[in-house]
C-alpha cells in the first residue's frame, strides 16, 4: 500500500489547485513516499484528452501527469460515479487509470494515514 493518498477534486485550468496538488505528489515521491492519486468530482476533468491550456496562457496539468511514471506513481484511480455524473466515459480520458466505485474510494481513505485533499 502507498504512503500518501492525494485526492484531486478541482478542474485543471481555472485555478492553480490541480498543479499545486500534483507538485505535492511529485515532491512526496522525491521524499521516497509512494503516492496514490484519486480523481473525483471536477478533478476528473484533469484527465480529459487534448487540453490546450496555452490558449489561455496557462500550463495546465498534462505535462506533469505525463511525468508521473518517472516518479513511480502508477496508482491512479478515477471515481466512476464522478465520471458518469459528468457524462464521461473512461475511453474519453487521456490517461491510463483504474475506475473505482464508492466502496473502493472509502477503503482508500480508510487505509491511508496521510491524505491530502485538494
Amino acid at each position: 500500500m502507498s504512503d500518501l493518498l492525494i485526492i484531486f477534486r478541482k478542474p485543471p485550468v481555472g485555478t492553480s489547485w490541480a498543479r499545486e496538488a500534483l507538485d505535492l505528489a511529485l515532491v512526496g515521491a522525491a521524499f521516497g513516499q509512494q503516492a496514490s492519486l484519486v480523481f473525483m468530482g471536477d478533478g476528473v476533468y484533469q484527465l480529459l484528452d487534448n487540453q490546450q491550456p496555452d490558449q489561455v496562457e496557462q500550463k495546465g496539468t498534462q505535462a506533469m501527469m505525463k511525468a508521473l511514471p518517472m516518479y513511480d506513481i502508477d496508482q491512479i484511480f478515477v471515481s466512476e460515479e464522478s465520471l458518469s455524473e459528468r457524462g464521461l466515459t473512461k475511453d474519453q480520458l487521456g490517461f491510463d487509470c483504474e475506475l473505482i466505485g464508492q466502496t473502493e474510494l472509502q477503503a482508500l481513505l480508510k487505509t491511508h494515514k496521510q491524505v491530502f485533499n485538494f
Binding site: 468530482g41 464508492q102 474510494l105 480508510k110
Partner: peptide, 8 residues
C-alpha cells in the same frame, strides 16, 4: 456531497 460520498 463529495465528503459524504467518501466517508466510511
Amino acid at each position: 456531497k463529495e465528503c459524504l460520498f467518501s466517508a466510511s
